[in-house]
Write a protein that binds this DNA or RNA. Structure first.
Lengths: 107, 107
DNA sequence: CTTTGTTACTTTGATTATGAAAGTTATAAC
DNA sequence: GTTATAACTTTCATAATCAAAGTAACAAAG
């Protein structure tokens, strides 16, 4: 795992954590579509490979964006619930959405 | 070049174009720090490999975020200037900056 | 007129990440 | 004992990344 950040720029440091192909979409699913279980995240329309979904959920938990809470025993199963830190990402997601709606209609 | 987008979600479609490790930082450099030439982009504190910088600049031109305009003859040299489409990304960059400043102080 | 310098890349080859598919574990229901 | 569900893990081929060196087009210096 790479812990060092590329620079002191807050934009760069945010992208060090969130700036890959899947992480922000998982946060979108959690924050906007209220998905909670592994299976729910898996069903999203972008078809993330399960290996990457497992990895990204783990990272999001490690970084404090999601908390893994058991919702059932025998067998133990988990929900991923959003933290305040995750909620602070909502403006980013809204800005991405607004950009997409305004600028990516034809293409 | 991969043209198909992962889904119809505007967040996903925006990330299909901007959602990699370097593209948004190049747009930050262009929009916020007013960098123009290849050498200026290269000097940014994140040390992007020149091969990737060349590739990302090409993609940003292809997608209409930057225009490559000659600023000198013999030898011909170019500046990359931001388009309106690029300027529409500013709210995303501002949101990333704000998140980083608010949430990534210790780590 | 050969060497050094500048800008803007391109090429190469090793390392790392991604992705599709299949496999695993735990348990309940039939 | 077979099928089903949830939540992953493993495997391995393919693709992306990265550091370093190389190339091209010219200007200026010696």
């Amino acid at each position: 795992m790479k812990q060092l950040h590329r620079s002191h720029c807050p934009v760069a440091r945010t992208l060090d954590i969130l700036g890959d192909k899947w992480t922000l979409l998982i946060l979108r699913d959690a924050l906007v579509f209220h998905r909670k279980s592994f299976a729910e995240f898996e069903q999203s329309s972008e078809n993330i490979p399960t290996s990457l979904l497992a990895d990204r959920l783990k990272r999001l938990v490690d970084h404090g964006f999601l908390a893994k809470v058991p919702y059932q025993q025998k067998p133990t199963r988990y929900h991923y619930v959003t933290t305040e830190k995750a909620k602070a990402v909502l403006p980013v997601i809204r800005a991405l959405k607004k950009f997409g709606e305004a600028q990516l209609d034809g293409s």
